[in-house]
Each structure stands twice: as structure tokens, then as C-alpha cells.
């Protein structure tokens, strides 16, 4: 039973499109979020992430396309579907005149949950000591943690979080990351998390979707994304790196990038590395190091989004 469940898809959209005025902000997006995954939904600011999330939560209605969550069509089963989702959209929605505990109790009242659940959540996000302080006086990180506690309150199967680490310090980010990983690994939840920084989620995400200008550019597991990444030759040279790059280019090699005294050349073979080394030595450049590197995911992400924008 569990084996079957693991393979199933929690969020599935087909050809999802949405237009604000005359600007199409979501273009035929087809998402597949597997059960038990941490799905990192990535894209620069304004790429259409928040709009997609609002479509998933039935806050906006798509011009065309369909959304199925837990196999149920969202419009026809709105209340049943939303009952299984905990969400945090943009900045956390918190009543500033109420304490942290009161914010949670108000939500517990709406969702008919016991007060004990409120206390559990306060402990989980380390807000016990600040529970009776007005939420308006919380720091940004505390507000964000309270927002996550609100999303988790009903113990939902699916968590949809829109940039939940915004405004958190590095410790806060690590805490949230550990919490989400625990929820997925120990409690079998599925997490759909958006971010404009790959570096924030590549340590926990199992799957990644990259969106830019409303279009899905990549979707798949983290391994698939890594496989797309090109191998490069990284060369540290003495002297003018730009001139050295020109010399290498003139011999038919492709220079991918130049950073101060370091060059990146598309990797072809070991022989090619030797050739470049010899060439640079002949031209009088000192080669301090020459090594094969994998392009990091952050650059890959930038590559994918920039190529699409060009």
C-alpha cells in the first residue's frame, strides 16, 4: 500500500495558464510533484511562482488547464483538497494585535483543533517563551516561524510554502530545512517550496522545477538536474587572464567564463587539457593549476533562466 502511495503524484497540473490583464504570467505549466518529495520550485523574482501557488490553492482561477491535488480536481473538491494542505504565501499572515499563541488558537478554532496542538506547534518552532508576546513585536524570523507553525497546525499531508526562508538568518534557514526534511522523512509529508535561490533548497530538495517568465524550463529530480550540468576545465593563470582566454579561443577551444585570474573552458578530454596547458606555457603564461570541475547548480540555474530570457 505504502509502496503504491510513494509512487503517486500529489500535485499534477496540465497546461496551466493564467493572465493578469494582458500579461500572461503562467504559460501552460505542467507540474508533477511526487508523493514524499521536497519539490523546490525555483525561479527569479517575478517568474510566476507565487501566481502558480495561488492557482494551486484555488485563490486564483486558471484561464485554461487543470489542477489535481491528491488525485482530486481542485475546483470541484475545493474544501476536501484544502483540508489536506498547509500553506504559507508570501509573508506570513499574522494578526499583529494578537500574541503568537492567540494567532495559533484562532486558526485552531477555525480548523476545530485542540489547544494541545497549538502548544505542540509552539514547541516545534521554538516560540514557547515568546508565545504570549504580541506577534507584531516579533522579529522577522519569529514571524516566519509562526507562519510555518500556522501552516503545520492541521498536520497537513501537503505543505505549500512560498519563500519560507525569506528574512531568516543562516541558523533560521538551517532550522527550517531540518524541520522540513524531518516532516518528509519521518512523517511522510510532501513539501512544495518556492525560492529564488537554489542554494537555499539544493541541500534538501529531492525534485526541482525551474520557472521563468511563466514557463517551466526544467522539471525533474535533483540528480537529473545535476546530470545536465556541464564539465569544465578550470585554469588558474598568472598574467592577463583575458589575453590568455583569447589565445585559447584562437586555437578552437570554447572559453565559458573568465573570472579575474581564472578561466573556464568547456571540457572535452584529458588530451585537450594537456593541449591547453602546453599552449599557455608556450605563450608565456604561468599555469598555477588546471583541473576538471563540475559547474555548480547555482550557475546551472542561472544558465537555464538566462538562456530562456535571451
Amino acid at each position: 500500500m505504502l509502496g503504491n502511495k510513494r509512487k503517486s503524484v500529489v500535485i499534477q497540473t496540465e497546461g496551466l495558464s493564467f493572465t493578469f490583464g494582458n500579461q500572461q504570467v503562467v504559460k501552460s505549466v505542467s507540474l508533477r510533484v511526487p508523493d514524499g518529495s521536497i519539490f523546490g520550485f525555483l525561479g527569479p523574482n517575478g517568474a510566476g511562482k507565487t501566481t502558480t501557488i495561488k492557482l494551486l490553492l484555488n485563490l486564483l482561477h486558471a484561464d485554461s488547464g487543470s489542477i489535481h491535488i491528491f488525485g482530486q480536481e481542485i475546483k470541484a473538491n475545493r474544501i476536501a483538497v484544502l483540508g489536506q494542505i498547509g500553506s504559507l504565501i508570501e509573508q506570513p499572515a499574522i494578526y499583529a494585535h494578537m500574541t503568537g499563541r492567540e494567532n495559533l488558537r484562532n486558526r485552531a478554532l477555525l480548523l476545530q483543533l485542540p489547544h494541545s496542538r497549538v502548544e505542540e506547534m509552539l514547541a516545534l518552532v521554538h516560540l514557547k517563551t515568546a508565545a504570549d508576546k504580541k506577534a507584531g513585536r516579533y522579529s522577522l524570523g519569529m514571524k516566519q516561524r509562526l507562519g510555518i507553525a500556522l501552516a503545520l497546525l492541521s498536520d497537513p499531508q501537503l505543505l505549500i510554502l512560498d519563500e519560507p526562508t525569506n528574512g531568516l538568518d543562516p541558523n533560521g534557514i538551517i532550522e527550517i530545512r531540518q524541520l522540513l526534511m524531518k516532516l518528509v522523512h519521518e512523517h511522510g509529508k510532501t513539501v512544495f517550496i518556492s525560492s529564488h535561490l537554489l542554494g537555499e533548497i539544493d541541500k534538501m530538495a529531492t525534485h526541482v522545477g525551474i520557472i521563468n517568465n511563466g514557463e517551466m524550463l526544467f522539471q525533474g529530480s535533483l540528480e537529473e538536474l545535476e546530470a545536465m550540468s556541464k564539465q569544465l576545465v578550470q585554469i588558474e593563470v598568472g598574467g592577463n587572464a583575458a589575453e590568455a582566454a583569447a589565445a585559447i579561443t584562437s586555437k578552437g577551444h570554447t572559453v565559458a567564463d573568465v573570472e579575474q585570474d581564472t578561466l573556464f573552458v568547456d571540457y572535452l578530454s584529458k588530451e585537450q587539457m594537456g593541449e591547453i596547458n602546453t599552449l599557455l606555457n608556450q605563450k608565456g603564461y604561468v599555469v598555477y593549476s588546471i583541473t576538471k570541475v563540475q559547474k555548480d547548480l547555482e550557475n546551472l540555474f542561472l544558465d537555464i533562466t538566462q538562456k530562456a530570457g535571451a
Binding site: 490553492l57 484555488n58 474544501i79 484544502l82 508570501e90 509573508q91
Partner: peptide
């Protein structure tokens, strides 16, 4: 204004309540 100030309209409308 309780909802405007806290920006909670969207939260209210994403609860499993009609």
C-alpha cells in the same frame, strides 16, 4: 482592517471553509 493590516484575506480564503 484586521485582515488588511495582517494581509490575511488570502489565508482566510485558502482555509478548508467555503
Amino acid at each position: 482592517s484586521i485582515e488588511h493590516k495582517a494581509d490575511t484575506w488570502k489565508t482566510l480564503f485558502s482555509l478548508p471553509i467555503s
